[in-house]
Design a protein around this nucleic acid. Sequence first.
DNA 1: GCGACAG
DNA 2: ATCTTGTCGC
Length: 229
Amino acid sequence: MTVPADWPTTAEAARAEQERLRPLVVPEGPEPPRRPGTLIAGVDVAYDDERDVVAAAAVLLDYATLDVVEQATAVGRVAFPYLPGLLAFRELPAVLDALARLTRTPDLVVCDGYGLAHPRRLGLASHLGVHTGLPTLGIAKNPFTFTHQPPGDHRGAWTPLLDGPDPVGRALRTRQGVKPVFLSVGHRIGLDEATAVTLALTPAYRLPETTRQADSLCRRALATTTPAP
DNA sequence: GCGACAG
DNA sequence: ATCTTGTCGC
């Protein structure tokens, strides 16, 4: 894994970079990418802060069957500390490397975290979208600093995720009686489409198959990694 | 000033 | 994210 030479080192530089990237995000998109053969990518990252090692995984799923059709990983050094609001600077170098190792281009990339739902409207999924030019979507497990009313108990029920008065995403119930997931648009996709995709990716579990597969893969990659000589 | 805070 | 065993329930 190679961290770009100009990658931000400080929180101040990272925030400045976000200001530069924000106008480039396209938080809406055309209709569903549901033609036969549509490929959905899932990405995730695991850490071993003791050894300063990071492992990223990118998996490609067939949107119709949810079968994994390709996998790739990337291992390297941690590029940035975890700071709420700056997660992208920690995860992106490894994620971009893993994605680049796929032989096919996904129609959509699903991230573990947020997109528009971000203090400065530029979460991990937004960054990834701008860097790759691909449609991206963020699906998080926690409401972060945002508020919401509990959605109805049935699968498919949702309520707005709010940053003060601003709707920034949705709390979506993917399994009846189970805590919702929190989604927001990244790049080149709209919220309704993001909701439909999320439901399509959760036929059996609360979390989408993309993140389940990517999570499993990056953990295996991290466990398998031997300290560099 | 202090605590909260995606992963 | 990560540290971590058993345990309640379908």
